[in-house]
Amino acid sequence: MQINDLENKALWLRQELWKMVMRKGKGHIPSAFSCVEILIALYYGGFAKVFPGEPKHPDRDRIIVSKGHAAIAQYPILADYGFFDKSELTKYTEPGGLLGMYADFRIPGIEGISGSLGHGVGMGAGYALAAKSDQSFHKSFVIVGDGECYEGSIWESAMFAAHHNLKNLIVIVDCNELCILGKTDELLSLGDLKSKWMSFGWEVASVNGHSFEELLRAFSKVGSKSKKPLVIIANTIKGSGISFMEGKAEWHNKIPSPVELSQGNAELGIVEFE
């Protein structure tokens, strides 16, 4: 896909997510919107191998959204790839429906379980190590939040992946600088994430996480000559795409009022939805 098409796809994903969440009043829009471009670049930018209609294809790349609040952002994409029926999107969180507020192993195309932070990198390292030992060429992409990097388990896994030269493991840090109570820098500084990952033995790239041009350039490093695993620090804006949510911690799990809902609809170009 060309950049223009990817941008259209990103708008489509925001619209689908907005409708899905607003219909039920459940879900975390700002966390999901912060990594929309990352996911679109991965799934449609030609870097991750996805096999339409075949969620269990052995050669697929494993994509794990470890920051579970944003895992709902995979749902419209997975439906688009024919992994389950699109009608599931309207049944989101309903009893009998497939899709919940956090992604789950039962959902075709979801490679793990999320909702508790700090598990995805270790699990991804497991996938990557198995692939390496089986001489299989698929890769594992794990999206973590910067707030998730508070979890010590992330660093245990980072050390492990570097020691084992898991170059088939790619971590993308969705770095929106916010956690529930406010700005990470003010609450408990994460320090210089770039040097931290580098000192753990990773290749590090730093990009604007909403720029397809920069994301695609960073993804093109995947599979380079380096033996090291790659981390892409993607600088993002939490709530990106909805002006009144952007960069505001209090919107983490708040559902808009009717007036705000109309404003959101207008900003996303949604005329009406049921």
Partner: peptide, 17 residues
């Protein structure tokens, strides 16, 4: 390593594989 948390997370990826 003396990293039980990673050991368990890692095992899940290996087991699914």
């Amino acid at each position: 390593g003396i990293s039980e948390q990673n050991m368990v997370d890692l095992s899940s990826g290996l087991a699914i594989s």
